[in-house]
């Protein structure tokens, strides 16, 4: 069954959604959308470094994404103006990454794959990594769920309950870096943030509790992956952008349903 490239692609998309559904919900609740951008754009630089140093690509992206995520959350904790800081960091990281990639012979042709993903070329090894990474992130989020929710509501409330908001923020930061590292192959650096935010935003209007929102975001993400692959197969469109297109359509539908119900 895994011999079929379409099956592998669909399984990779579904696996990724297991992590992006719940994590994306936190990104939306905590208004970290730009934070996701900065981290995923930094991943391009990670790819360049990995290729230059002959490291596995996943290791390179993970390290650089983690470094970026930690930098951003440290600056945020010190009270830097976040929209400006993130705007500078996100786009600089992307530019540096693209410049670095141009120095590497033979990589330039893969640029589209880096930016928009190449889900149809997912190997068995990639698949194992996506599911492994997603399981890790999902496990982390489930384990810290109550604490993460409390911290998201109010850091003072979390403190008073004996929790450490800094630690919970670190959990999300690490989870984000892991998701970026495994998702770059599937949707590419430019669209990882979309995969986090759009399914969660689509789930918001239809749900009444954080748990159902995270679960529905996962379903919408998985549905978008499968639907996007179908679209791509049918009309020969790029797979990554097709997945996000389906997610955006579902979002529009959900907004309409939610406003009709009101």
């Amino acid at each position: 069954m895994l011999d079929d490239f379409l099956t592998r692609a669909a399984l990779a998309g579904v696996g990724l959604s297991l992590a992006t559904g719940p994590l994306g919900s936190f990104v939306v609740w905590r208004r970290m959308a730009y934070f996701g951008d900065a981290t995923s754009h930094a991943a391009i630089l990670g790819v360049a470094l990995a290729l230059a140093l002959s490291l596995p690509i996943a290791a390179g992206t993970l390290i650089v994404a983690l470094a970026m995520a930690l930098t951003v959350s440290t600056l945020a904790a010190r009270g830097w103006a976040m929209d400006t800081t993130l705007g500078v960091l996100a786009h600089s990281a992307l530019a540096f990454g693209l410049v670095a990639v141009s120095f590497l012979p033979g990589v330039r042709t893969d640029l589209t794959a880096l930016l928009f993903g190449d889900i149809l070329a997912v190997s068995r090894g990639d698949l194992a990594m996506v599911w492994g990474g997603a399981a890790l992130v999902l496990g982390l989020l489930v384990w810290r769920w109550q604490a993460l929710l409390t911290t998201t509501l109010s850091e003072d409330l979390a403190h008073a309950a004996g929790l450490n908001p800094d630690r919970e923020r670190l959990v999300l930061t690490v989870a984000l870096a892991v998701v970026v590292a495994v998702a770059i192959k599937i949707v590419g650096a430019l669209l990882i943030a979309a995969m986090l935010i759009i399914p969660a935003a689509a789930a918001r209007g239809l749900t009444r509790s954080p748990e159902t929102m995270a679960a529905l975001a996962t379903l919408i993400g998985a549905g978008s992956a499968v639907g996007g692959l179908g679209l791509s197969f049918q009309f020969d469109t790029p797979a990554g952008p097709s997945i996000i297109t389906i997610a955006a359509l579902i979002f529009t539908l959900s907004v309409m349903i939610a406003s009709l119900r009101r």
Partner: peptide, 20 residues
């Protein structure tokens, strides 16, 4: 308690945070 509108949460669910 500035709850973001993007976070769906009933009063009942809120009471179970962080301790059920």
């Amino acid at each position: 308690l500035a709850i973001d509108r993007s976070l769906p949460m009933t009063a009942r669910r809120f009471l179970s945070l962080p301790r059920p």
